[in-house]
Design a protein around this nucleic acid. Sequence first.
DNA 1: CGGCCCAAAATCCTATAGGATCCCGGGAAC
DNA 2: GTTCCCGGGATCCTATAGGATTTTGGGCCG
Lengths: 230, 230
Amino acid sequence: MGARRDLDRRGLRDRVYDLVFEMLLTGDLPPGSRLGIDTLARDLGVSPTPVREALVHLERTGLVTREALKGYRVAPPLDAAQLAELFDARVVLETGAARLAAARADTLVPTLRRLQARHEQEGEHVIALLGGAERVPLEAMQAYFAADGAFHQAIFAASQNRYLIDMYDDLGAVTHRLRQVALRGLTDVKEAGAEHRAVVEAFESGDPAAPVAAMRRHIANVRARSLGGL
Amino acid sequence: MGARRDLDRRGLRDRVYDLVFEMLLTGDLPPGSRLGIDTLARDLGVSPTPVREALVHLERTGLVTREALKGYRVAPPLDAAQLAELFDARVVLETGAARLAAARADTLVPTLRRLQARHEQEGEHVIALLGGAERVPLEAMQAYFAADGAFHQAIFAASQNRYLIDMYDDLGAVTHRLRQVALRGLTDVKEAGAEHRAVVEAFESGDPAAPVAAMRRHIANVRARSLGGL
DNA sequence: CGGCCCAAAATCCTATAGGATCCCGGGAAC
DNA sequence: GTTCCCGGGATCCTATAGGATTTTGGGCCG
């Protein structure tokens, strides 16, 4: 009941928000499909009111869209233009965060080394599974992406800038959706690992401009690999 | 009644959002003061339900804060750390937008010239009023800030990146709050005008890196002038 | 056979009511 | 005198009901 109490403590609206958020990230909901308020309320066993508020909250994340008096829908898939803009925005944020984080490279580098090791480990795991079966289990992929995300988030954390961190989190929700569509080739695991290593070494170099350049190259390569697969 | 119909068309919740948003931007609400849902509903003549949803929407802008089961409050004033982070984030976004906008300098420069002229005009207006009376009318100040904002927003518009634009708008709400506290000296009107001119010329130069550098200097100077006044 | 109109169902939106929680002030116990 | 407890008031949160709007399906007209 302690758990129940914690949930009550955050309010039912926040719980509904988390639930719907997860539903959207799993991706089993086709983009553009309706998110009926009453339907959601029935499925979740709550009244429409907290569902409405959770959807208002989700609307600002870009995961759902709203048309007044017409209801909510799962956000449509990203078109080519949005994809390009998304990567441009990521370059801006990630290079900016790298520039700020460079001032705290000494404390950042050990963390980065650890996360990079985890990232490569998960990558090798994926490669091993890839050789065996023809479909990699979802869990392994999620672990790999989580390790990749942790690496980037560590740099933002080191920037110690709450506004950049918030903006990156917002983009992260959209980015996650991207992975469902343009599942970038699993063959880029080695390259991504090498680029992460280059980023770490750039932080070690002491040159403040080096991490910025390394990160810019990394995102550009991710972009090329993602769009190339289309 | 056409207007009434348009308002109905957007939903009462959106209207309440706009109203509360304006209330917050005028700044007559002391930071940290409570935003009671029932109180707001009574003042606006609506039921608590749309007020609640408008506040959920506002929560994600950073203008109001929420404590579960305790209610909403006007966001507390920005402390020194937040101020520093805010300017760092602005540098990241504005230099990034300038880098992207540089590719479309030819169409951007005429617009910037026009907005810069308007900015300087409003600036001279403020200076003239400053010489006459001891307090500059609020309208003149708002016109000056609006011209300043339009200049920066034009660069973001030229970046043609909806994510950067959205992020800048979000920061804009917080930035506006800053002006109420750290009303940066009116004496910086001339300097700001010169810096804007430098930005325009940097776009004209054809060097993609020039606008980035000019914008970085501009924000750094704004920061110095703002924080110096404290 | 295609297009238009209208009515019914579904859905959204707002209002209201009741239960749960937090805050505050008074009184008793140590 | 201080601390603890507790009861009333205010506020938030969720549930439910009713009005307004959109959508859909059938029938009618051209």
